[in-house]
């Protein structure tokens, strides 16, 4: 099944549930009408939160840059000894 169909199925299921709520008036009508708005808002909040948290916990590795510089120096040394031109431009 194409992935978009899965998502659409999910949307349809949620809509059906919502329409069910509207009809049976288990919750008050005015509240039920607002539910989709809440849903969209919470989805947006979830996205922002995930980006925010991801940004705060973004894994960095400054020590790796130092190690790479050492590897580069070592590599250049070796390549030079083999007569390979590694002058950086």
């Amino acid at each position: 099944m194409k992935h978009i169909l899965k998502i659409m199925a999910l949307v349809v299921a949620i809509s059906a549930f919502w329409i069910g709520l509207l009809r049976t008036s288990i919750v008050s009508d005015s509240y039920a009408w607002l539910l989709p708005v809440y849903l969209v808002l919470s989805l947006g909040c979830y996205g922002l939160l995930m980006v925010g948290v991801g940004l705060m916990l973004f894994p960095t590795c400054p020590q790796e840059a130092v190690l790479l510089q050492q590897d580069i120096a070592e590599g250049k040394e070796f390549l030079k000894s083999k007569g390979i031109d590694v002058a950086s431009d």
Binding site: M50, G54, L55, F58, P59, C61, E64
Partner: peptide, 20 residues
């Protein structure tokens, strides 16, 4: 894992793209 050498903008787009 991790990344080194990205500015805030680069991290932001990367996170946004990933969450999306």
């Amino acid at each position: 894992g991790g990344v080194h050498g990205w500015n805030l903008m680069r991290k932001l787009t990367s996170r946004g793209a990933n969450v999306l």
